[in-house]
Nucleic acid binder design. Sequence first.
RNA 1: UCCUCGAUAGCUCAGCUGGUUAGAGCGACUGACUGUUAAUCAGUAGGUCCCUGGUUCGAGCCCAGGUCGGGGAGCCA
Length: 506
Amino acid sequence: MTTYIREIAAHEGKVVTLKGWVANKRDSKGLAFIILRDGSGFIQCVVSEETLGADNFEPIKRLTMESAVSLTGTVVKDERQVGGFELQVSEAIVISIAEEYPIAKKEHGPDFLMDHRHLWLRSKRQWAIMRVRNRIIFAIHNFFQSKGFVQMDAPIFTANACEGTTDLFATDFYGEPAYLSQSGQLYGEAMAMAQGLIYTFGPTFRAEKSKTRRHLSEFWMIEPEMAFYDLDMDMDLIEAFIQYVVADILANCKVELETLERDTTMLEKVKEKFPRITHNHAAKILRGEVDVNGKNALKMLEQDTIDSQTRIEACKAEIAEREQKIAGGTLKKGEINFNQAAIDRLKNEIKDLEATLENIPVWYASAKNFADNNDFGGSDETILTRLFGTPIMVYNWPGEIKAFYMKADKDDPSIARGVDVLAPEGYGEIVGGGERETDADLLVKKINEHQLPMEAFGWYLDLRKFGNVPHSGFGLGLERIVSWICKLDHIRETIPFARSYGRITP
RNA sequence: UCCUCGAUAGCUCAGCUGGUUAGAGCGACUGACUGUUAAUCAGUAGGUCCCUGGUUCGAGCCCAGGUCGGGGAGCCA
């Protein structure tokens, strides 16, 4: 029977058989250390010539990275090891020998890694990210199912844009033009009128030629829709939802977060209440007219410039120091490698900092001149959330920049009853939602204003004719929340095979 | 679409003011070593300097155009 590494602690002192791949190998005469991975975890296996005999040990010496083996041995507690245990191998069977593995135990560039995504997924870090993604999906379903929501799927082929603002992927549907769905929102409203509380969870496609660390062309979105909910109830639900998911990950993905070296102090703060601020107030904060907890947006950026410059000087000094050490010629080979790797890292850090320095004046101008009827840019979102340190909810948006279906405020019709949730630590918008317009005449007017084809919205307007009720919903980008919770540099690491501008393989 | 940076060994990079035969580390391979944590030590092999054209006695380096990639803007989850 095969045992999985994840449950190894239950087999202490017993003989088990593990089947997996060689993640790393170190050997010396008569002794080999194999880091085995089986998908459920990683464990060091010790193979000795004395135990196996020369004939059985020889094939083990020939094992290459990612070769497949079946190892039988005794589970021994060993505090030095990552999982706390190691396997003393008594029998080894080689299943297959791998060719030279392209991904080495060192730093690679993003393009190389994405070209080898099918293999990169095996690495420890990517393994941890995919486990977190899996658990987030599980937690999302748990949250909504326990509250009586029904999962209902929206179609992926659609006849028209539901918002009309972003670019769509065009395709052919039996000779008719069709588009890949950019949102299940309108269908969600129809389904909520049938089941009361629903959520959709499916892929979404956007042909925006975005080349940033926040965008994918194909991503997964969860879109709940609730009958008889107004904006305040919507915001209460969003807050409870995000708090639930984050608490679940903190409780159930300790090993994964540790592997990712995720500092969880910011995630712990998510249990605090999310500040709710109007778009108008957020604009004042951005322009530096209003301070938050004694912090000023513009002054923070000025300080960033100074901090970045100081850090660049410090990096340069450290590089010079390490280069001098290497030139000294007294270091051992390992120490030289260590110093060289540190120099590479520092050089990359300088590159990033210099890019930041170049961008800060742009971000500063964007914040300082922020217009009341504007949408936030990526940098504006970063500035706002850094001032707070928890997720924040920005509500009551200028209607002109929001979708046609968003409800107009009854006191000021130029205001849309929408809400965006901005994640801390620079991750920006993870949720967009709001209350839906129920006034059929107003909807018709807005569809015309947005120059959308009226005939495509006949069924949608029907929802206002038959049992019209106030309702709200929101959309959450799965990859964005994975990115934030794992604190990743780039969203491309959050999905097994990313599809983004310029990337369709593997 | 715009701004900006880049492309040199399988990988990560260095290559000075344009000058002889192209450099390092890692990885691979061969060997040594019985407790390694990116093991260590010795050795071996490995190059279309992204493409096209130009300047020059001479181009990895300079110029023009292109291709691909990173970061950012716009747009968005």
